[in-house]
Amino acid sequence: MKTDEPSMQLLTALAQRLRSDPQFMAQVLAVYQREEQLDDAALARSLGTAPEMMTRLALCRRPDAHAPDFTEQVRALADYTLIDEARLARVLQRVDQLAEADALPHSFRARLLAGVRTALAALAPARVSWLAGAVCLVFFAVTGVLLWRVYHRTSAPNIAQQRPQPTATLPVPAGQRSPAPNDTTAPHRSEPVASASPPRRVSASRPATVIAKIDLEDYPVLREAGAAGGEGAKAIQLAPARARLLLRLPESSASGWYRMSVVDESGRTVATTRARSVGGQRLSASLDLRGVAEKSYRLRLARAGEAPDDYPLSISRSKMLREK
């Protein structure tokens, strides 16, 4: 096929030319792409569409955020480009936020400059010498204060440098005591957790997410209650972290809502979530396993109104998979 390839290239070239025109969606997409560091394919993926639809979107005019029918305009664009309207609205919102953030320092700087200009204009030439004297006085005063502070800092005992460095707080397994701050007998460690793996700093703003692709056909279904994982049974391996599970469901599974839980040997649920399978083949869900002790569990999968299926699960730090 590909007889339309030259036409597509032509439209893509036009879209490229419009990337600097703020009246067009091409510019919105360019800004979003730059900020999110996405290439063309990743941008299309993030909007859940094909690259040619991105071209069509780029050729559209940008909806006016202040127009009373802004929502309707976004909806119209979303239908026209077969893109989910919520995703499109998010992109527009993000780019608007960026534009506002950019505009803020400029306006502040402009106001500051205007203020300085006004102040300078207000100063009469006769007062310049008086002003120069005042500036020198302030300069000497500030320099003196700074020198005094530097002298006192260097002569004072350096207590601050002996403080332990702040560390990421990770869950402490049951039964293990973390060393008290004044406990000088305890060995100095960067993490209060006994672990064979090297210390790992956890970002507070964006916790690590582990992606686990699991084919449930590969694991035995545990029917009897009691023993968590089942001795010797092949178990799903997960790390005690925030996990995104991409499950391939067993054959003849039904579509619909599923409850996914991590259950310990006493039947207590330690983590749970809900997820929807559209075709009955795959299920994607997030489970927060941070703070869950390292041992054997059951991964329980239950569809509304049906008996749950349990799979052996082992949570262990050493089984850290790929980090997102």
């Binding site: 036409s7 439209l11 069509r56 559209c60 940008r62 909806p63 026209y80």
Partner: peptide, 14 residues
């Protein structure tokens, strides 16, 4: 009309 520029381009540019 946000879509019209895309429509014009798709019809007339090729």
């Amino acid at each position: 009309d946000g879509r019209v520029t895309a429509e014009i381009a798709e019809v007339f540019l090729p």
